[in-house]
Each structure stands twice: as structure tokens, then as C-alpha cells.
């Protein structure tokens, strides 16, 4: 479990992170979302003690990161997969982590297998690696100490679709085994699929947080019927506002149970009926609207 309490960081008069508090629970994947420069990476650096907070604390299972006797076996960290010595081989990078943590040397080969780097690739220097290979190596380095907590900054960056699927399965598996995963991303689709909880920040402040299920639950329903026009008339007759979208689906503010009852009363066959979901992307853009670079520019132009 990662507990972040009232964490802030200022640089001169610039506030990078502004009194952020949230908890990443064990057994769950917490997605940390926000536009570029929102303070995600600064927050993650403060968790692992690379940046000193101006106010507040971050603890892992109740302890400050710097108080962990051997942090690598408690917390797997990958903040930037490219932050590696270009002249060192992948195998040596894993070896250094393994030796520092004092875990058995065979963990190096186990991790290479886990992240699907071949022996030949492992003996190449990291300067020749693609971004996806560096991400795999970074994940291997984070997992080599068999930690219970993972802190990953943009882990899906640079991975191909198969790699993204692999990463998703790996993190799901880790959380299902009782581990805590905190991952940042601006790949909304990825977060929408993998995260159990979502923390969204903009301009250093939390704009919303909660379980994905509760955040994405929208109002109203979406329905399709064999005769969409008839369903529309029936809903109007029952006093519900409804519209037919260009693809023939019908959206209404009425709950699915109401739509179902109306359809039965009018003996209309439904082909689809579900609660409307607000997409993460819409929510992201809406909630961070006044912090987005692009809208900021529009406003200054206007």
C-alpha cells in the first residue's frame, strides 16, 4: 500500500504538485493520470525519495522510502526506462540490481525470461535497445527483488500491441497476487482497461479520484431497437427525452430499467440496452480542461 498525504513540491513560485493525497491499495492497480507537466512524475519521484517534498509525506506500508532497509525487495521502481548507461549490457544492468539487493544471481536469468529478452539481446549494450526493449528491461529490474509494490512511470510507452497486452497481464497478475501497483500514463485506453482505481491530476492538483467503476458510471442509457423510431415515440409518449444518434442507437436520460419497461409496454423488440458510460477520455478532457496546454492557448488567443 502506498499512502500519499498532503504532498506538495514548489520550484520558486511554480507549484508542481499541490497538496496531493491519495492511497494506492494492495491488490489493486491504481492508474495515475494527467496531462503532460501535471506533476505525475514529480509525485512519483517524491514517493521514492529522489525529490524532496516541500510539504507532506509518502509512505510505503507505513514507512518512508528512505527508511526501507533494502528498498529494492519492497518496491519495484521504473521511472524512466531510458535512464540507463548506454554502454552497459542489459544483463549487467539486471546484475547490478540483483547484487545490490542481495537476491540470488539466478534471478537475472529468470527476469530475462519473464520480460522475454533473449540471451543474445541481454548481452547487447542498452544504447542499441529499442524503447520497447528498454521498457522490458526496466520492468525486469523493478521485479528482480520480488517486491510487493510497483511504481511505474509510463510503463506501456514504446511497447507494441503484443507488448502492451503482456504488460497488462503481468500487472493484473501482480495485483491479483496481493501486490500494489501505481502506474502513471497518458495512454487513457490502457488505464481504462487495466486500472481498478483512478487518480487524475491537472496542474499539480487532484481533479478526481475513485474506483474506475464509480468514475465511469454515466447517467442514462443507450438502446437499440428493431424499430428505433417506434421506441423514440414510445419514450417521448412516456415523458422521457430521447434522441437517435447517427448510427441508429438511441440515447436517453432514462435509466435502463425504465427504457426496458417502456419497450415491453409498447411491445418493441430491443436489440441492445445498456447503461451509458462516460469514456475516460471525455472525463479526462473535461476535468483537465482548464489545465490543458491546448485549451489554455485558445483562451489566450480569444
Amino acid at each position: 500500500m502506498i499512502t500519499i498525504d498532503n504532498l506538495s513540491r514548489t520550484y520558486g513560485s511554480t507549484v508542481a504538485v499541490d497538496h496531493v493525497s491519495f492511497v494506492a491499495e494492495a491488490g489493486r492497480v491504481t492508474g495515475f493520470l494527467g496531462p503532460n507537466g501535471a506533476g505525475k512524475s514529480t509525485t512519483m519521484r517524491m514517493i521514492v525519495g529522489l525529490t524532496q517534498p516541500t510539504t507532506g509525506t509518502a509512505t510505503i506500508a507505513g514507512r518512508r522510502f528512505a527508511d526501507l532497509p533494502n528498498p529494492g525487495v519492497e518496491v519495484g521502481v521504473m521511472l524512466d526506462a531510458s535512464a540507463q548507461h548506454a554502454g552497459r549490457t542489459g544483463r549487467e544492468i539486471l546484475g547490478i540490481a540483483q547484487q545490490t539487493m542481495g537476491v540470488p544471481a539466478r534471478r537475472v536469468d529468470e527476469m530475462l525470461e519473464l520480460v522475454s529478452l533473449t540471451s543474445a539481446e541481454a548481452d547487447r549494450r542498452v544504447g542499441n535497445y529499442s524503447l520497447g526493449m528498454r521498457q522490458r528491461l526496466g520492468v525486469g529490474t523493478a521485479l528482480i527483488g520480488n517486491p510487493r509494490v510497483l511504481v511505474l512511470d509510463e510503463p506501456a510507452n514504446g511497447l507494441d500491441p503484443a507488448g502492451i497486452r503482456w504488460m497488462r497481464d503481468l500487472l493484473r497478475d501482480f495485483a491479483d497476487g496481493g501486490g500494489t501497483v501505481l502506474l502513471s500514463s497518458h495512454l487513457l485506453r490502457e488505464v481504462e482497461i487495466i486500472a481498478d482505481d483512478i487518480v487524475m491530476i491537472g496542474q499539480g492538483r487532484i481533479v478526481c479520484q475513485g474506483s474506475k467503476a464509480s468514475l465511469l458510471r454515466g447517467e442514462g442509457s443507450v438502446a437499440r431497437a428493431a424499430d428505433a423510431r417506434a421506441l423514440l415515440r414510445a419514450l417521448h409518449a412516456s415523458g422521457h427525452d430521447a434522441t437517435v444518434t447517427s448510427d441508429g442507437a438511441l440515447t436517453t436520460a432514462a435509466e435502463p430499467s425504465v427504457v426496458g419497461r417502456v419497450a415491453v409496454e409498447h411491445q418493441l423488440a430491443l436489440t441492445e440496452l445498456r447503461a451509458a458510460e462516460s469514456g475516460l477520455e471525455d472525463m479526462f478532457l473535461e476535468l483537465t480542461a482548464n489545465t490543458q496546454r491546448d485549451t489554455r492557448r485558445e483562451r489566450t488567443v480569444a
Binding site: V48, G49, L50, F65, A66, L68, P71, G72, V77, L79, D80, S82, A83, Q84, H85, A86, I93, I96, A97, T100, M101, T141
Partner: peptide, 14 residues
Amino acid sequence: SQRTGLTTFTLVPH
């Protein structure tokens, strides 16, 4: 210069 400190100083946070 090679930014390995990101790993070094998280594995040994002192």
C-alpha cells in the same frame, strides 16, 4: 550524465 542515478539512488536511498 547517463541518468543511472535514478536507479542507483532508489536502490540505495542514502
